[in-house]
Simulated scan of single mutants.
Amino acid sequence: MSADNRMRHTLYVASLLPAIRLKLCIARIYRYWPIFVLTILALNACSSWAEAGSFIGLWHPRATRIMQIATRYAIPAEQTEHDSAIRLRLSTDNLFPEHQDKLTSKGKMLMESLGRELTNLPGLHISLTGHAHLPARGYNPVLFGWRLSALRQSLVACGIPATQIRAQVLDTAEHPIPPEEILRYGQEVQLAILPTQP
């Protein structure tokens, strides 16, 4: 091979080196791509677990304090194990004066105590539900709905976002009460606190 041909061959090989290096680099990346993907997934999972852990860390002490508040005010309460939800049965007789939808001083103190424990928990969902009175003479059929709204507003005033609180008067046809508990119509509000992870 002549010197010119050798020189041309050397230059040709040198010109191919960047392309060869690039292909080798791509081959290495391709070979290790599962490791890159798994690393990214693991980092995301760690972040989610940390958020869940911080939420659970915030919720459990507050749940304990909410149950203590319920005991202090003699409110029937239960906490379910599988989802850590708390359900309180609030008597309208203890929260409102007769035929009114403004909270009594005791009712305000109770809702403020609960509101303090329920603020700054973005994954929380609160529902206020109950059955209105059956139609009767001398009874305002919309009063129970106004009372639910007053309870909802008292929690909003404590700093809980309105989007986290649902207030609903239940339809007796869809959600019947057993005959032995007929006195609960218009007399009881179910306050359910559901700590759902955001």
Rank of each mutant, 00 (worst) to 15 (best):
N44C: 09
A45C: 10
A45M: 12
C46K: 07
S47G: 02
S47Y: 15
S47H: 14
S48M: 11
S48C: 07
W49G: 01
A50D: 08
A50S: 12
E51T: 07
E51W: 12
E51D: 13
A52V: 07
A52P: 00
G53D: 11
S54L: 12
S54W: 14
S54R: 11
S54G: 05
F55S: 09
F55I: 03
F55W: 14
F55T: 02
L58D: 15
W59R: 08
W59C: 01
H60Q: 14
H60M: 10
P61R: 09
P61N: 05
R62P: 00
R62S: 04
A63T: 03
A63G: 07
T64S: 11
T64D: 13
T64E: 15
R65C: 01
R65I: 02
R65K: 14
I66Y: 06
I66S: 01
Q68P: 00
Q68D: 14
I69A: 02
I69M: 04
A70R: 03
A70S: 06
T71N: 10
T71A: 10
R72D: 06
Y73K: 02
Y73C: 00
A74K: 08
I75N: 03
P76H: 15
A77M: 04
E78D: 10
E78R: 15
T80M: 07
T80V: 03
E81A: 08
E81C: 02
H82N: 09
H82R: 10
D83T: 06
D83A: 06
S84A: 13
A85I: 02
I86M: 07
I86P: 00
I86W: 04
R87Q: 07
L88H: 03
L88K: 01
L90D: 03
S91F: 09
S91L: 08
S91I: 00
T92H: 10
D93N: 11
D93E: 15
N94V: 00
N94Q: 13
L95N: 04
F96Q: 02
F96H: 06
F96E: 05
E98Y: 10
H99P: 00
D101Q: 11
L103K: 06
L103N: 04
L103R: 06
S105A: 12
S105P: 00
M109T: 06
M109E: 15
M109A: 10
L110Q: 04
L110K: 02
L110Y: 11
M111L: 13
E112P: 00
S113W: 09
S113G: 06
L114C: 01
L114R: 05
G115S: 06
G115K: 12
R116W: 15
E117H: 07
L118H: 03
T119Y: 15
T119W: 15
T119Q: 15
T119H: 10
N120H: 13
N120G: 02
P122M: 09
P122H: 14
L124M: 07
H125W: 14
I126H: 04
S127R: 13
L128S: 01
L128W: 08
L128Y: 07
T129S: 09
T129D: 12
T129V: 07
G130V: 03
H131E: 05
A132P: 00
H133S: 08
H133Y: 11
L134S: 05
L134I: 02
P135I: 08
P135H: 12
A136K: 05
R137M: 05
Y139P: 00
N140E: 12
P141F: 15
V142N: 12
V142Y: 08
V142D: 15
